[in-house]
Design a protein around this nucleic acid. Sequence first.
DNA 1: TAGAGCCTGCGG
DNA 2: CCGCAGGCTCTA
Length: 284
Amino acid sequence: MEAALPELPEVETVRRTLEPAVGRRVLGVWTSGLPLRMSRPVDRIGLERAAVGAVLGAVRRHGKYLMLEFEDRGELVLVHLGMSGRLRLVQLREPEVPHTHVVFALDGARQIRFSDPRRFGFVDVAPSGARMREHPALAGLGRDPLLERVGGSFLHEALRRSRQVVKTILLDQRILAGVGNIYACEALWLARIAPTVRGHKLSRAQSDELMRAVRAVLRRALTRGGTSLRDFVDADGIEGENAEYLRVYGREGEPCLRRGCGGTIRRVVIQGRSTFYCPRCQRR
DNA sequence: TAGAGCCTGCGG
DNA sequence: CCGCAGGCTCTA
């Protein structure tokens, strides 16, 4: 079992752990100089303009994106954790982990540090407030299932418009923001829908059930996210926690955990991603 | 719209 | 020691 990838619940957990930094002033910004997502360099000048000298006003999230908002500034700092990104609020004296790429020095001998071995994540500057969506990463972002009321009708409409299989649609951040590979698998299992079904084949009732399953899976993971993060320093802690609540992900060849099903979990590749499901109880 | 590419760690 | 892991962007 692998450690939790940063999907919506993990990102929300990170957001909460950053809250104590609100009210602190940014004294400086340091960058490693290495390029991050898509080999793009970090805009250090922009980060300084947006943050240095300002007081952190809020830490917000939409989907898998984090936004650091500052008081009396027209820009915010946008963070995506990619696959292996970490954003941590630490004491100055805490040793720096390898692959640290951006550090915000705060008053009170604290730092916010972004580390990311694979460099699939990024830290960038975006306009704050209503103009936030001018940043290309946020422009087409869909609805956040935990921040907004998203009904089955919304999902049903998106499914009807598409010729893609349902799992691909769940992963489309332009529709629902925050669902990743693991929770897409988990939600489909919970809703008893096979990942390979074409979206437009789903009934309104199935869409309702799937939307409820998405929320349930994300909420459940979020309640355990705090636990995972506390155990985070202790790397083994996360894995145990993860394995405990994942019903299908990573369980190829193992028995389906649905009561009375008796099926065996299968792995298929959809859109180049491992997809786990039970061919017995998840309807095609 | 499908597939390549980005990247490092780690499992086989 | 090769190849898989995967979120997102870009290209054909």
